[in-house]
Design a protein around this nucleic acid. Sequence first.
DNA 1: GTTTGTGAAGGATTTCACAGCA
DNA 2: TGCTGTGAAATCCTTCACAAAC
Lengths: 217, 217
Amino acid sequence: MEKQQVPEAVISRLPLYLRVLEQLRNDGFEVVNSGQLATLLHSSPGQIRKDLTYFGHFGKRGEGYRIAELADNVRQIIGLDRVWNAAVIGVGSLGSAVINYPGFEPAKFRIVAAFDREPEIIGTVVNGIHVQDISELPETVVRSSISIGIVTVPGEYAQNVAGLLIKAGIEAILNYAPIQLRTPEHVKVANIDPVLSLQSMTYHLKNTRSDRKIPSL
Amino acid sequence: MEKQQVPEAVISRLPLYLRVLEQLRNDGFEVVNSGQLATLLHSSPGQIRKDLTYFGHFGKRGEGYRIAELADNVRQIIGLDRVWNAAVIGVGSLGSAVINYPGFEPAKFRIVAAFDREPEIIGTVVNGIHVQDISELPETVVRSSISIGIVTVPGEYAQNVAGLLIKAGIEAILNYAPIQLRTPEHVKVANIDPVLSLQSMTYHLKNTRSDRKIPSL
DNA sequence: GTTTGTGAAGGATTTCACAGCA
DNA sequence: TGCTGTGAAATCCTTCACAAAC
């Protein structure tokens, strides 16, 4: 349908655009221009306009973009005009925190199942979700139309869990384990790894002294 | 000191390199070549060699890299030859999960303080950390040599907290709040936002049907 | 012979500047 | 006049291919 391949960098910015558009709409605004969006997004007007032209012509010259209309378009482009079902695998403290995180539901992601392999955890209920035995995963994934697997098991089990998910037909994985998952081409993986994020920041900090003096004294 | 500016993309890969080098060393290996590293990292031999040349000549032609030596070099380059102190701001369920996360300590990050503004939370102890009143942040940051702030407050308070941290002299922020923080040039920010990660994957999934049939039936 | 180190080519992404339209 | 839409230029990053070193 699209004339050309859309850069990944553009796709990764669309959810941010949608977020501020919905914020603006909630605040009662109706029209916005690329300069205002750039300020809110810490981006540039040109980049925002260029990004949007990969998908169509959404603005009016001399006026800007109608917020509700643009939000609807962006929402549809990135596939958020529907709800996506997800499963959490690994219900330790990290998995529990994920299941309890209130940010997924309003963003169109619904956690509908959770799995573990520990007998003490199986059968417990976390935020209304009944924890199942990992062996029930293949059937539940299909029956509950689960498209996304959220991997919160320890690193040494993550590759096996990913294999299970892929065999069950899942096409996207949100991976909290500190390993690089090996997956087939068609399965998307996003990694959440706060340690790596911290470690790439220290490169820039390495000249700071830990024994610096109190600034105001 | 360096001859040229090192690309951010290179810096963000160094922690991954370090991780597999330490793994290899723990497994008893002594030498590795760029092809083997590329396999482990899902990268390419050329990219690994190119990345390393931004910092020096670490290999022996015809042989490869000595693992312990290269690991030491990479560790020093990214500033992980020391421990970095961090503070968590916001001790709700997300903040508690962060404080309890066992992955920071072995990666050279030590959470040494936690802050909240709720009287019911102040004074509690989470994983050995005494939760302080947010008003004590400036003094504690300096006295405990804290370089990194981990922001786990709700989005509407995150910018204020970031301002406090910056005023206290912090230079890196790990931001779990779903907003783009505005910070001065010299303060590094890394965002952890699982919702954005999920939302950029659905673009690629949007043609999948939720009513697909069970593959094996 | 093997594998590194690296300039040069290629590709991706961002920025620029201005034509085009309301 | 004001702001979008968009080729072209510039920049950033990755891949390639081979000379150099062991």
